[in-house]
Design a protein around this nucleic acid. Structure first.
Lengths: 141, 141
DNA sequence: CTGTCGATGTAGCATGGGCTACATCTAGAT
DNA sequence: ATCTAGATGTAGCCCATGCTACATCGACAG
């Protein structure tokens, strides 16, 4: 492998890392909205403000951007719902979150820290790594 | 645990996630600079441009911000060096990277994918989770 | 009916990180 | 001596994400 190829590969990897970052917020929001809808039947700006710990302005603008991506839409009553695409993303995110959380716990990480780390990691794992985690859990249960 | 406490904890978690993000770039740069210095004895803008796959302008501005944080400094010849703080960060980052990479490989992830995922994950792992990974490696070597 | 309060929305600003286009500077070739 | 190419730096733009301050709107108390 030439030096040039090493550099290209490296650049491509970092591109991917950056791309992942730009999706994290949307995933966090659809997950939170799905959660709120399950638990309380509504997902308002102020609920999300509480969850993410940012100003309501930041929530509103994030919601607008996510709405443009056809992941969510607003009801006439002012609550937010998921589109089918959004539902799919929320379901995938939540399954992935559960898997990572269970994996970390199985590895011996405390529940609280596993929760924190799962949230940090979950947007950065390939399907291959997720499969390996699943396999580990299967073999150790 | 009251609903209010749940919300506060959740907000605090997300704050932490955001804080981690703002440090990732600095860590990536000090790691890359340390790497370049070891391999070629110099770390110039153009070398970093090749590694990260961004324009030289983005590299220059990132370097300036990182310089303000006293992690790096520029030599008269135009190469970049690490300060002691920067060295420490690079060393810690690189050890953590190795650990995560080895862990993923031990888990059965392919070398290439393990490299990619290690880069994505490494900034989001607590010392507790890193310890668990180390323990797993010790028990399975 | 009106005042107040909670929720939402808008205006405008900062910072980080990306870019292109242009300017400079140095070293090597002619 | 000058021309060119590579490396670096500057000017100025874009977008995402954060914020405060102000405006609106609806519901409920008085």
């Amino acid at each position: 492998m030439s030096e040039g190829e090493v550099k290209m590969k490296s650049a491509a990897r970092h591109d991917r890392v950056r791309q992942q970052h730009s999706d994290e917020l949307a995933e966090d929001y659809v997950e939170a909205i799905a959660d709120l809808l399950t638990k309380s039947g509504q997902a308002r700006v102020i609920d999300l403000q509480g969850i993410f710990g940012v100003s309501h302005v930041s929530v509103i603008r994030a919601l607008k951007r996510i709405e443009e991506r056809k992941l969510i839409h607003k009801t006439v009553e002012g609550s937010w719902r998921l589109t089918e695409t959004g539902e799919a993303m929320a379901k995938a995110s939540s399954e992935r979150h559960e898997l990572v959380l269970n994996f970390l716990q199985a590895l011996g990480v405390s529940d609280l820290q596993a929760q924190v780390d799962a949230e940090g990691m979950e947007h950065h794992l390939s399907s291959e790594t997720l499969s390996s985690m699943r396999r580990y859990l299967d073999q150790n249960q």
